[in-house]
Amino acid sequence: MKRATVEYIIAGTVVAMAILLLVVGALRTHQVYDPDTEEYGIQAFDRISDAELTIDATFSGTKRRDGRLYSTYDRSEPRGKQACPT
């Protein structure tokens, strides 16, 4: 098989894989707990999309503790531009 053909086959596979990752990412959601809010003794959480978690990652809007994700800001307020502490 010619080199160019092999390249196209591998590239096509990687494109398919990338699209699959994007589709899974678009469909996936995460539970992000509010550290300050409890309802009937149970901690309240928001369900956010992978895109929202990506935005949170740009300013450390979420942190992980004891295997759970916790919000570091009030999600009910308008967010605006935020800087990352790292």
């Binding site: 990687v14 894989m17 990338a18 699209i19 699959l20 990752l21 994007l22 899974v24 990412g25 678009a26 996936r28 995460h30 992978d50 895109a51 978690l53 990506t54 949170d56 990652a57 450390s60 979420t62 942190k63 992980r64 994700l69």
Partner: peptide
Amino acid sequence: HYAGYRIFPFLAVGMVL
């Protein structure tokens, strides 16, 4: 951040790939 969260970054990896 995703490594810290121990979650695979599907959207970010998909976009770069």
